[in-house]
Design a protein around this nucleic acid. Structure first.
Ligand SMILES: [Mn+2]
Ligand SMILES: [Mn+2]
Ligand SMILES: [Zn+2]
Ligand SMILES: [Zn+2]
Lengths: 142, 142
DNA sequence: CAACAGTTTAGAATGGTTTTAATTTGTGAA
DNA sequence: TTCACAAATTAAAACCATTCTAAACTGTTG
């Protein structure tokens, strides 16, 4: 009987959690898988909760919120603020910007590497820039 | 006895309401005065409500919310989305951007005329850009 | 003035998010 | 493996900015 090797995606999720010093619980592992396997995307707590249920993962909404915040604090996720109705979390943690479809709530990434912002005043004295967000708001109307 | 002339600030508030086709009620007039006399600034519903109370204006929080939304719809105010905890309204309706102090919640305007953003992809087909928001987030730490 | 639509309001409801406090689970030592 | 303990999960309640409801009030117009 061969040694059962851990599948690579599980390894990746485990490694992420280990690096973030978060215990690899069933729930965190399952949520990490849902978040990081599909590639860059944006979720709300509610959406991730539904995806977990659809995938048969037994997890509470409170844990989804806890996990999203812990991952954000650990730098595995980023929060995107586009409206006050609900919080989006972004699995793309590189410097980038967003199109925001105001009608549907959909977000699309804009690579930050090509974007150049000129003419900004320097930050007020004693302040440190933690991030520059550019949000292009789109109305449905043609 | 001379004719009592309407003071200019009251005239201005009246004119704004007339142009916006909103009835000049006591509450709207008082809120317009608090909003538009001091020059460009940013308020939340709660802040404006407190300012009204401090000024002895009898108005309910519900009316403050109603009025802020009506003024926004009429183009007299702009909403600024910087965090999901509460909604800011901006009396500066020209194209401009913001410094946002994440610690204090304070907003400072950045004149849009000097800012030039290059390298943005064009809007997806069928979409119309309703606004481009630039938010520079500042942490307290030096 | 009267009549009526528009406005205000207190209080209830909403809904995304956080908190509570009890239970369960992961970990490291023995 | 077992134990003990800290960490994590959870159902349920609480929170709180905002919106809704429906009854009272007010501005306008004739
Ligand atoms: Mn948060
Ligand atoms: Mn609104
Ligand atoms: Zn993104
Ligand atoms: Zn502003």
């Amino acid at each position: 009987m061969e040694t059962q090797s851990t599948p690579p995606h599980r390894l990746a999720a485990l490694a992420r959690l280990r690096d973030a010093k978060l215990r690899p619980t069933k729930q965190r592992l399952a949520l990490a898988k849902l978040l990081f396997e599909p590639g860059d995307h944006h979720v709300t707590a509610e959406i991730l909760f539904e995806q977990a249920q659809a995938a048969g993962v037994k997890v509470s909404l409170a844990t989804v919120y806890n996990t999203l915040h812990q991952f954000t604090t650990a730098g595995l996720l980023r929060e995107v603020v586009v409206n006050s109705a609900c919080t989006y979390f972004d699995t793309n943690i590189t410097g980038h910007h967003h199109f925001f479809f105001e009608d549907s709530g959909e977000l699309i990434d804009i690579d930050g590497a090509n974007v150049d912002i000129r003419g900004l005043p320097k930050a007020p004295d004693g302040a440190r820039i933690s991030r520059v967000d550019v949000i292009i708001r789109l109305s449905g109307q043609e």
